[in-house]
């Protein structure tokens, strides 16, 4: 049977995730991801007419907290973990485009 997923689709997903993969990996992931999709596809053989779609496995709703301020982290400790910082800010390589 034909693969449920094309190489092009996998290449696109990799590009969106900023992953550089080799041709061999592209081959391998296309097959592996295809198997996962096929497995999920098994569900179509079941009669699920009376089953409600599951949004979340826990079945909980409205999990919320009160609007009360809690202490934040110490800035110096946080910035010490960053590759670079300046004037209390994270320094990052220059940005080529504007935010989406």
């Amino acid at each position: 049977m034909s693969s449920p997923l094309s190489r092009e689709e996998v290449a696109k997903v990799a590009k969106l995730a900023r992953l550089r993969i080799t041709d061999a990996e592209l081959e391998q992931f296309t097959e592996q991801l295809g198997q996962i999709l096929e497995h999920a596809h098994d569900m179509t053989s079941l009669n699920l007419a009376d089953v409600e779609p599951t949004g979340h496995p826990f079945g909980l709703i409205n999990v919320m907290r009160d609007d009360v301020v809690r202490p934040s982290l110490d800035r110096d400790a946080v910035l010490a973990e960053a590759p670079a910082s300046e004037d209390g800010r994270f320094a990052v390589p220059r940005i080529m485009g504007e935010a989406p």
Partner: peptide, 27 residues
């Protein structure tokens, strides 16, 4: 106009010193 951020208890305040209202969630 809340006291805290959407998903954590850091203060929602304009004009604070940079990176003083941050925690593991919003980072």
């Amino acid at each position: 106009k809340t006291a805290t951020k959407m998903f954590c208890g850091c203060a929602n305040a304009f004009g604070s010193e940079p990176n003083t209202n941050i925690c593991p969630v919003c980072l």
